[in-house]
């Protein structure tokens, strides 16, 4: 039955052999979905010189890795990637295909879905398996992928289902699926593929490519001190830095603070920034728009400091301090230094 129905596939994003964190998150989620459906979890990775770079995918739960290598697949350009993936999908007909909602994923997945005439849901924050009854068409669908995502600027959460032929395709937001503990003893099957690329797929030329690591990896931070518009000035942002230094945390910001030019976009938490789930998130002068909350409301502990007692940030906070940052933050630093 499993062969006929197709497996769960995860598109693995890599750059110079380094696998993107979101791809590992998706392998974990994919494994969970595959278990429910009684099928396998398979990964497909495209690039060049990938030997020895993919074992970690087995540790997180992959049964099979399709390792597809060609000079034209490194660095990423959309046409050869799309062509290769489409051929593989036609051959293997996976049930589900997951992409990270990264710049690459969001460029590639729609192109592939369009050729496959498959439904595609962008930027999912949750995936479940359930039945779906199409009341208009009076049709029942068993064990479909529930594709759950925010829409309308985050004001609503929609559950979407693909009713056409498989694959059921989604892109998934970075940082929302939890990493399981890797089991380094696990092994799986590597299937090496040398794609035959058409001349048509090679018409895009990369003239120049400049890519630097991000200034900060907020997803790994255990303690995050985030400043918002209420911080007031760029100068005043030093308060946020001081608290972060004292508590051993990273600084972050809301979109308003980034737009004001007080800090760069690498530090932005929220729908158009990074999604984080640290042990402690301290929101300083952040009103808590729905877009910001979407990026931090899964934090284990949230402290909100704001002069406005009605600020929506308090609705997701565990501790609320109504007060001025200039008073509260120095008191926090002093209290911590005295106790720690």
């Amino acid at each position: 039955m499993s062969e006929k129905n197709g497996n769960v596939w995860v598109f693995i994003e890599q750059e110079g052999g380094k696998i993107a964190e979101v791809s590992l998150e998706l392998v974990c989620k994919g494994t969970e979905l595959a278990k429910k459906l009684g099928i396998k979890t398979e990964a497909v990775i495209l690039g060049n010189n990938l030997d020895g770079k993919i074992e970690t995918l087995f540790h997180y739960g992959c049964d099979t890795v399709y390792q597809v290598e060609d000079k034209a697949l490194e660095p990423f350009t959309v046409l050869p990637y799309a062509e290769t993936l489409v051929k593989m999908l036609m051959e293997h007909r996976p049930n589900i295909l997951l992409f990270g909602a990264t710049l690459k994923g969001r460029e590639l997945a729609p192109r592939v879905a369009s050729t496959m005439l498959a439904g595609l849901t962008a930027d999912c924050t949750d995936l479940q398996i359930d039945d779906f009854e199409d009341k208009i068409a009076k049709k029942m669908y068993k064990n479909k992928l529930m594709q759950i995502r925010p829409a309308f600027g985050g004001n609503i959460i929609a559950t979407i289902v693909n009713t056409w032929e498989d694959p059921q395709m989604v892109t998934v937001r970075e940082g929302v699926m939890k990493l399981s503990t890797p089991d380094t003893s696990k092994k799986g099957e590597i299937v090496k593929i040398k794609p035959e690329l058409s001349a048509e797929s090679k018409v895009m030329h990369v003239i120049e490519r400049v890519s630097a690591e991000k200034a900060v990896d907020l997803k790994k931070a255990q303690v995050i001190i985030a400043g918002g518009y209420g911080v007031g000035t760029k100068e005043n942002f030093k308060l946020i830095r001081q608290l972060a230094n004292a508590l051993g945390g990273e600084i972050a910001a809301s979109r308003a603070a980034v737009d004001a030019g007080w800090i760069n976009h690498d530090y932005q938490v929220g729908q158009t920034g990074v999604t984080v789930r640290p042990k402690l998130y301290i929101a300083c002068g952040i009103s808590g728009s729905i877009q910001h909350r979407a990026g931090m409301d899964q934090s284990s502990k949230i402290i909100a400091i704001n002069t406005d007692p009605e600020a929506p940030i308090f609705s997701v906070a565990h501790y609320g301090i109504v007060g001025n940052l200039n008073d509260v933050i120095p008191r926090m630093i002093k209290a911590f230094k005295a106790k720690a």
Binding site: L117, D134, M146, I157, A158, T159, T163
Partner: peptide, 10 residues
Amino acid sequence: PTKVKKIESV
């Protein structure tokens, strides 16, 4: 191909 199963407000 995609159908909306349900919509919930946040």
